[in-house]
Write a protein that binds this DNA or RNA. Sequence first.
RNA 1: GCGGCUAUAGUUUAAUGGUAAAACCUCUGCCUUCCAAGCAGGUGUCGUCGGUUCGAUUCCGACUAGCCGCUCCA
Length: 530
Amino acid sequence: MSNAAEPANIMEAIVSLAKRRGFIYPSSEIYGGLNGFFDYGPLGAELKKNIRDCWWNDMVRRRDDIVGLESSIIMHPKVWEASGHVAGFTDPLVDCKVSKQRYRADQLFFAPVYIAQFALGRGSVGEASPPPSGFTWSNSPIFYVSALETENVEETLKEAAREHKRKKSIPGEFRLGGIRDMTEAKPEEIELIPSPATGEPGSLTEPRSFNMMFQTNVGAMTDASSVAYLRPETAQGMFVDFKNVVDTTRVKLPFGIAQIGKSFRNEITPRNFIFRSREFEQMEMEYFIHEDADWARCHEEWIAWCENWLKSIGLPASHLSRYTHPKEKLAFYSKGTVDIMFKYPFGVQELWGIAARGNYDLTQHATASGKPQELFDETSKKKFVPHVIEPAVGVDRILLAVLCAGYAVEDVTDEKGNVEKRTVLRFSPRIAPVKVAVLPLLKNKEQLTNRAKALHAKLQKRYAVQYDDGGAIGKRYRRQDEAGTPWCVTIDFETIEQPGDTFTLRERDTMAQRRITESELFSLLDEHVY
RNA sequence: GCGGCUAUAGUUUAAUGGUAAAACCUCUGCCUUCCAAGCAGGUGUCGUCGGUUCGAUUCCGACUAGCCGCUCCA
């Protein structure tokens, strides 16, 4: 059961297998591909659908307190203003071309420096304190200084100015012009501002803003009034439709609204296969609770629920861990966020975020829309805005996790003692793209193929199954191993010659074989596929 | 967006300034009584565009995509 693949190459092997077996293709490949986008092939589409269905069934259908929703991908642009995405998604960045350092423009401060000189010119500049008698300030800045955001930016900048004066032997008093950050720099100033890394000007780029929301235009006109965004998260749909759900579905606190759907983020660096892509699918649920409810307990319950759900689709507990966001890094409205982490081959990464968001979102939308988002408390006779616990997970990240966790290359020793490699994807039967493969032992015996086709047709009504009569039986077993099919049933001579109508059931993980009847097979599937 | 490395069949890899090879996979046929058997066939515009050259898959440049490191990840 050893994992023969080198850890360093394991992602490469998984990407290669995913392509070869039809799980995942690069998007638009015949045109050279498109960075950050992927297509799901026949097996990938089944796998992904199964993950969605498991989640939807467990989260919505098998609970009495959660209802489903499908909101539109393009929503009113004001939704994203209220949610903070229009402002908060813009992170202008500045690069230093020499040191290759990158800074957030709003965290990189600069100031022009003026030097006292004899009063030869036409008066002082700016709003500075009066110059010493007999001197006036230089008309234009002699040089610029810069500093990263610290507790005392002004002092740091002054220190930098003193240092520069000393190095360049510039005499006289100095004063700083207004301190600004790089987002406020004029184009002609960029060249003059020194890089914090080198201390020399000329290497900084203009601030470039990376708003991660994809923009489009709605309607025939392409102007400012038609701008709309592809949603960067599905959550806002649940908040915006909160009152609709409350008014039309008889839900009572605590209750949740769940949604599965595509979201879009123009990521600067898509990386790690489908882990961070620009078009991805989210499964989010907003669980609304009373403002006086014990949110911390509810939060913990949802974290545990999510962990158990991940285990139920076959992710090993050994690969799961928790990361609690430090208080000081939380958004001001957040009471706490815990990420369930997964040990991917490329590192331990965020899989499922469970955030206690207070009533921030509903309050924002109430303010922005002018429509109160309140419920009435019959006990206290007061209106209140519910708080929310939000478990948010990416389908694609789960799919990658089950691919990585299930992938194994084993050494198999045959009867003659030869060691061969067996590649297998150990998907849980719940999510496996193919539940069972139906194989006639031999292709050229009609009795076998007829019985096999009949069984296949019967299974096909309820389950994703495959019929395969190509090549030797061993090869077909291995082919199903690579597709992650948990069981194969082989129609052999015992099936048609012995009483009992039994088949060979071959298990993927152990390669063990046993006899099984048709009704036993259906019971087996019924037990494990739900 | 920056730096380094890379791009040959579906996959993994060769060779070569004179238009390419192997294995595996896949498909068709034959054969095959339980773990990638065998035989016979089929499937390739060397990522794209341009430059140098009599001639470029090979050398150069740009672009696109991938990997690694920065950066980013509300």
